[in-house]
Design a protein around this nucleic acid. Structure first.
Lengths: 356, 356
DNA sequence: TTGCGCTCCGAAACCGGTTTCGGTTAGCGT
DNA sequence: ACGCTAACCGAAACCGGTTTCGGAGCGCAA
């Protein structure tokens, strides 16, 4: 249809006005008479005028763009939440016609350099980062750069910035309590590297709940492995090789839990019956696991929209520390959690039931 | 560290030069003496100068940005490929410091309006679209807009633009042939709405292979349903309710195949034994299905990079029709494909064998 | 009639870069 | 000594918008 986009200049020329006048007319300035304003607006969408955003943003001094820093994955299976998050973010931003950029770096150093370029070059007015480390160098950098940002997750000291997180600590307390309620006492933890704050949080919840239930923490029952299904499988194999293997396992993520199920099935045992497993994330494909994976679920779709709204209001000048949202996970029982089988653990069960 | 970004003006002032000179020095013009060029460059990265991209792009008249139009999903389980694609795209674009924008629309009309705004406002210099319909209105719009683009997938008439696709037709021929080789003859197809070209392609392959093996096509053996795991389950239930249910099913995607497995298990049958199932996509989580899903796999990570490179060279002036890449899927045998079981279907089976 | 204020629009500066054009200086040959 | 050329840099236009400032035109009251 239209070859070249129509600029403000040609629109003004066609109307016999100056560009300044046309611009003000379109932007609803009140020093323009209603009749010319209408005339301008009509001509504008007759000619299909779209203001050049690059020029507009340069003039405004605001990029009207935010960037999502895609997390690096060890396993390709761990990615489904990205699309949902992007969708939610886009939804929030589109209300103001802001743009959503995505950036992906191979290494941590590269990522820092990229962040620096991104904000120093004025391309973005805000950042969203996922899955921070305990002490994440990106956050200090962004703070130094004085660029508005929100974090999907938290770091060790999360007081002075905005974040949206799910309470992993509380979730694992609930998971462990649930298992204890089912009669389990030998509960193990399959975790991810503790440089990730979320991994630490969930481990904390696990330990707190164990202690709270009068159970003892065994070093061998805490297995840290690569954050992937393979990692979950390896960790679980370690557990099953123990002289006294656990009767239940809580996993730091659904992905790792999938690996745990594989390891268990491999030995001819059936998850949820011979040994219980609870994951974390509530990913949809858990329903198709073997057997369907019980998990601590969370409202994923919500996160993107909330993060987007938070970031926008911070850019508007809000105090970042006012935007800290802790969501609660809920237990989604499917088929991998079950009562302790009396047949094979005998006396131990009765002891525990007395305790409760 | 640095509060406000340093502009070309202050850099020039500090050097006692004009902005034009500094700009040319940094951009390697040869009408600048080597000594001042070095002096400028040194000062530039001493002061941490980063050219304002918004201004630069306005001046250049090129947005140096491409946009990926996120597909709309009926089921949240179908999204894992998005993150991989974005990663690949970003990788290709970052070689030139181009930006990657993502856009998501709720409805088709909205999407068209968004595309129009996106290119008419000069924000993007290229587009990537996924999973086109047979006759996709987006493509005509983008062509009218004269905006460079590449398609991840194809439409019914795909001669006049650039695309990257996997040969779904050939893949389903291979899948059906494989099943026939295992002794199956009553092979059904679980598909997605035929408005999607990929759904039609795969159906074509299925039908061609059936005919090619001397098998007859039955209307009831072709079940079209919603493109989701639930859809796959519903379709499979229809098939299993048939007076003469199929002994093997090929599914248009892994997601739908997961639903098929669920329906089969629901009736106490075991996939890969009582009835064979082959999916399509090769998604990682298929290994954790019950049982592990056999599928037509494809090199996912490759797609993003290729699409990015293609788009870039088209923007550089290449003929789009020179960039049409058809990838080949390969059979990934896991546990849901198996030989036809004569033993357990009793009379029904013998009937069937007579018919054949 | 003069003066005042209000309405409405034109002119121009500005955002931060890029690029063209022209002029100064130095170096060279004769 | 003169002129010519080449090397080097300054000045200014430009990209396409936004926004401030000032002035023309008008109505109204003194």
């Amino acid at each position: 249809m239209s070859a070249k986009p129509v600029s403000l200049k040609v629109l003004a020329a066609r109307l016999g006005l100056t560009v300044g006048t046309v611009s003000r007319a379109l932007n609803g300035y009140k020093d323009i008479s209603p009749v010319t304003r209408d005339r301008v607006k009509r001509a504008a969408d007759e000619m299909g005028y779209r203001p050049n955003q690059t020029a507009r943003r340069l003039s405004l001094g605001a990029p009207e763009t935010v960037c999502y820093l895609m997390p690096r994955y060890s396993s390709s299976i761990a990615q489904p939440f990205v699309a949902q998050l992007l969708q939610g973010l886009g939804e929030a931003l589109s209300k103001r016609n802001w743009d959503l950029l995505v950036s992906h770096a191979e290494s941590s150093k590269e990522e820092l350099a990229q962040i620096d370029r991104l904000v120093r070059s004025g391309r973005v007015g805000g950042l969203v980062i996922s899955r921070p480390l305990k002490n994440d160098p990106r956050i200090r950098l962004i703070q130094d750069l004085k660029c508005p940002f929100v974090v999907h997750g938290r770091t060790a000291s999360s007081d002075d910035y905005a974040w949206y997180d799910v309470d992993g600590d509380a979730a694992f307390v609930e998971a462990v309590n649930h298992l204890v309620g089912l009669g389990h006492g030998d509960i193990a933890f399959v975790g991810a590297p503790l440089q990730y704050q979320f991994a630490q949080d969930r481990l904390n919840g696990y330990e707190r709940a164990m202690l709270g239930n009068g159970l003892t923490l065994t070093r061998e029952y805490t297995q840290i492995a690569d954050f992937s299904d393979e990692g979950g499988e390896i960790a679980t194999n370690m557990l099953l090789d123990l002289p006294k293997p656990p009767t239940a396992i809580v996993c730091v993520s659904d992905t790792m839990a999938l690996g745990a199920l594989a390891a268990i099935r491999e030995r001819g045992m059936v998850p949820g019956q011979d040994i219980s497993v609870i994951g974390y994330d509530g990913l949809k494909f858990g329903t198709h696991a073997n057997p369907p994976l019980s998990t601590m679920a969370q409202p994923q779709a919500h996160a993107g929209r909330r993060l987007g709204d938070m970031l926008l209001s911070i850019i508007d000048g809000d105090d970042p520390t006012k935007h800290q949202e802790l969501q609660r996970a809920y237990l989604l029982r499917r088929k991998t959690d079950g009562p302790l089988h009396l047949a094979e653990a005998g006396s131990i069960v009765s002891e525990r039931e007395e305790l409760q």
